[in-house]
Amino acid sequence: MGKRRGKKGEILVENIIFIVLNIAFLAILVIFLVNQGNGATFLEDSYSKQVALLIDSARPGMIIHINFESAKVVSDKNGIPFSEILIINGQYATIRLSEESGKSYHFFNNINIDRADPDKDTNGEYTGFYTLVFSNKNDE
């Protein structure tokens, strides 16, 4: 009777350790995957290209709101002010989400960008969006 109870106990302990190890392994993998997808370099590359393509498609008079919420999470973590993550200089859109990195992408549209500022809510907090206002180059 005592022996039988011992075997059951062993099986239970083995299974629990096995399951715990599997869960730990999967958790580490999931954390790795999430970190890869939210990495500064990866987001800088995709955001800079998205912004450049949006500018290329823009026409004078347009107002475009761009969602930078994922970038804000990373820039906040890396101590970069949200107001400084998007820089439009000349024909380049640059995204910088950490001190060490930054990615620029060229756009061909010769349009005037009147405003490229982060949006704020009523409390003065950044919402995670940027507003871009376009006008004709000749209207300057």
Partner: peptide
Amino acid sequence: VLMVNAYYGNSYDVREVESRVLADK
């Protein structure tokens, strides 16, 4: 890890879209 690196390590290739945007413009 290899598969994830192969996916996230590659840059997004937006040149086809960009060339279409240029043609449309």
